[in-house]
Structure formats: structure tokens, C-alpha cells
Amino acid sequence: MMGLSVLGAVTVSAVALVRLARTNPKRRRILGLPQQATHHRPLAAVTMVCAPGLLLLGMEGGPAFTVWLSALTLLGWGVASLGR
């Protein structure tokens, strides 16, 4: 059961992390992408990144949270490296 909940939490956090990377105005400017017409509201995406980890910590305990945090760190590095 822990594996499925961690996988779900990592998936939700990864989607939000990719959204943060795609809508970041400074990152878009550095990569030469056009600016978005909509306003950048990172608070909702940051909440979506962090909330699954807090839920895991409350429901499954420390090991699930640690696995989620490790996977999120690797995904963050992967998203950052794909933008160049």
C-alpha cells in the first residue's frame, strides 16, 4: 500500500513541478521562450508540490515521506536539466 501512495504523491508533485518550471518567467526569458499572457501564480503549484508529502507524512509515516522527498529531488534535477 505504501508503494502506491508514494507513487501517487510523486506523480502529483511531478506534474506541479513541471508546471512551475514551464510558467516561470525568468526561466522562460533565459531560454528565449515568449512570455505568457496569463499571470504567474506559483502559490497553488507550490502547494501541489508540497501537499502530497505532508499527507504521506501523516498517513504512512517517515519512510514514505523520505522516499517521496528523494524522488522529488531527483525529479527536480531532471526538470532543471531538460530546460537547457
Rank of each mutant, 00 (worst) to 15 (best):
M1F: 03
M2Q: 03
M2H: 01
G3F: 02
L4F: 03
V6Q: 00
L7K: 01
L7C: 05
L7N: 01
L7R: 02
L7G: 09
A9K: 04
A9R: 05
V10G: 02
V12P: 01
S13D: 07
S13E: 05
A14Y: 12
V15F: 11
V15C: 11
V15S: 11
A16P: 02
A16R: 06
A16V: 06
L17D: 03
V18H: 07
V18P: 03
R19P: 03
R19H: 12
T23A: 12
N24E: 14
N24R: 08
N24L: 12
N24C: 12
P25K: 03
P25C: 05
K26R: 07
R28Q: 08
R29A: 15
R29E: 15
I30F: 06
I30H: 06
L31F: 03
L31C: 11
L31H: 09
L31R: 13
G32I: 03
L33G: 00
L33S: 00
L33I: 08
L33A: 10
L33W: 13
Q35Y: 02
Q35G: 13
Q35S: 14
Q36W: 11
A37D: 13
T38K: 08
H40I: 01
H40D: 13
R41W: 13
R41Y: 14
L43Q: 13
L43I: 12
A44L: 15
A45Q: 11
A45F: 12
V46Y: 11
V46N: 07
V46P: 00
T47K: 06
M48T: 09
V49Q: 00
V49Y: 02
C50Y: 07
A51D: 08
P52T: 09
L54P: 00
L55Q: 02
L55P: 00
L56M: 05
L56V: 06
L56C: 06
L56H: 03
M59H: 06
E60R: 12
E60Y: 08
G62L: 15
P63Y: 15
A64Q: 02
A64R: 02
F65R: 10
F65T: 15
F65E: 06
F65Q: 07
T66Y: 05
T66P: 00
A71V: 04
A71C: 14
A71T: 01
L72N: 06
L72A: 11
T73G: 07
T73V: 14
L74A: 14
L75N: 03
G76Q: 04
G78R: 07
V79L: 13
V79G: 09
A80L: 09
A80P: 00
A80I: 01
L82P: 01
G83R: 06
G83F: 01
R84D: 12
R84L: 09
